[in-house]
Write a protein that binds this DNA or RNA. Structure first.
Lengths: 110, 110
DNA sequence: AATATTGTTCGTAGTTTTGCGAACTACGAA
DNA sequence: TTCGTAGTTCGCAAAACTACGAACAATATT
């Protein structure tokens, strides 16, 4: 019957997935938690919170930055990272909306 | 100086990352959206919502099931999927708590 | 018994992720 | 200039992810 399956994913679903993917690693959750609750947010501090090599920390930070959840600023000789508030709130709204979809539903199976 | 870096990730951070990772693909977000808003949730319906092969759909469903976000039930000859409400709420709470951490903070850089 | 329906599983291919050490950049201090 | 500090980038390896077609299982229909 070949039903019309040339659907693409919606922009919103892509964006939510992007945020979720960025959060999809314990190191990155730890980083975000740390940044969300601290004022001091230098690379070295973050590195000390994590059980991984600094090269790897740098990579995770890059991914979070690419996803828009954090931002960095050079403060020679250190690098200061922090939450990107604008996108943080955007992400929060995305997740909130997403989970709210379910609310009043009855379970459909089992 | 070898600061003590044998920290592990916390269980909560691991769990949140697990949920986030499961949500980290547009196909899986689409599936969850669909299941969260429908009562009919057979494999075929889900398959028709997605621009990918059924083998791939099956794989994504398996990942969501492994992460605990959905559950399936055989209703010969079909398979009925739905949200796992208990874990859905757990995930919702995890994300809510996570994002709430930031609230009143001033931006720490830039 | 042969067919059709509905999904799952297998095997495979290509891409991405994760992680590390080593090399590198940029700057300040000795 | 040489050294130390603070991070990033490079190159590599192993593992995980994404996707597909083909084969398979389980049941219902002809």
């Amino acid at each position: 019957m070949e039903s019309c399956k040339n659907k693409d994913y919606t922009i919103d679903n892509e964006q939510l997935a992007r945020f979720a993917k960025a959060m999809g690693h314990p190191a990155r959750i730890t980083i975000l938690n740390y940044l969300a609750s601290m004022d001091n947010c230098y690379f070295g501090d973050i590195y000390n919170e994590l059980p991984i090599a600094k090269a790897t920390v740098s990579q995770h930070l890059k991914e979070l930055k690419d996803a828009g959840l954090i931002q960095g600023e050079i403060e020679t000789p250190k690098v200061k990272y922090c939450i990107n508030s604008e996108n943080w709130e955007k992400a929060q709204a995305y997740f909130e909306t997403f989970f709210a979809l379910k609310t009043e539903k009855t379970t459909c199976c089992k």
